[in-house]
Amino acid sequence: MAASIQTQIRLPLAVAFKVVLQGFRVRFGRSIVTVLGVALGIAFLMSILTGQVIKEGVAGEQAQRNETTRMFNFLIAEAGLPRGIVLGIAELGPLSIVEQRLLDMIAAAQFQQMQRGGAAGAGATALLVIGDGTLTRTRMDVLVQDARHRLVFTTRTGQASVAPSEGKLVLLARALRADEVEKAAIEQRKTSFRNAWIVAIALFVTVIGITNSLLMSVTERFREIGTMKCLGALSRFVRQMFLIESALVGFVGALGGAVLGALFATAAYAVTYGGGLVRQSLDVPQLLLAFGLCVVVGTGLAIVAALYPARFASRMLPAHALRSDI
């Protein structure tokens, strides 16, 4: 006989979801308001994050453009006008974006001649060493051997460990001074602290909003909860249902809010910086990361917001819950 006693009481997840979704359908209006609350909070977070990604992207893009121009100007200043230069280019390895752009700029500037490969140095007025790698002394000497002027430009500090035996080595790259780096870091910290503070307040308000609306929802559903408990639902089931409900609200709201925030911030910065620059410098992986973060944060906060209401609902005694309508 003991074997025939089914001791399990369980709430299949599918059933829980169904109950929650049906609840949404019935209380559609208020669910939408709650979702909007989450969406606004998350939209704010997302717009800040997107703004940061865009600002960093644009700053990086501008820095690269400036660096390219500066290198080019430096090269012209040392070697002379493009029309008179036979430029030999030695590629050591993969190019950085700035190096690639420098090459593009050089190609557009109509030098007298540009030569690459093994014989890059033959008759060259100037040599440009470019790319990721290191020149050995021997190779350096071979390059420089046939050159007219033994003038060698490098784009990175590590490219040539030694100067050629004859001629002059010029480093085009420029490292930031220590005080410049520090100033930028301080500025960065100031901005991110301010942003974190504003975002924290916005999200806190969102959490309170969700908690409030869930508490209302609990009060409204006293009878339903009591009925379920009379049918044998464990407190855990009631808690689960409220947590699922809130997680769904949070997820949908966060999705919507993240899209909204990203669009808004992109539009705003496109007006400030110009659409072209923003489009060109947009760091899509970073943006997707921010998007994912927003969805996770939104869902997570919604679950946190639901903890108290869910506990409140689940602790209710069935007899009390049923009496509440009388």
Partner: peptide, 29 residues
């Protein structure tokens, strides 16, 4: 349990109201 004011769960169909406690008891759907 049967109550004076029925206490059916209004968002569910009659069948779902009846089967809810069966699913708590672990019965296949």
């Amino acid at each position: 349990y049967i109550f004076q004011s029925y206490h059916l769960i209004r968002v569910m169909t009659c069948l779902e109201n009846v089967t809810l406690s069966m699913s708590f008891a672990g019965m296949e759907s």
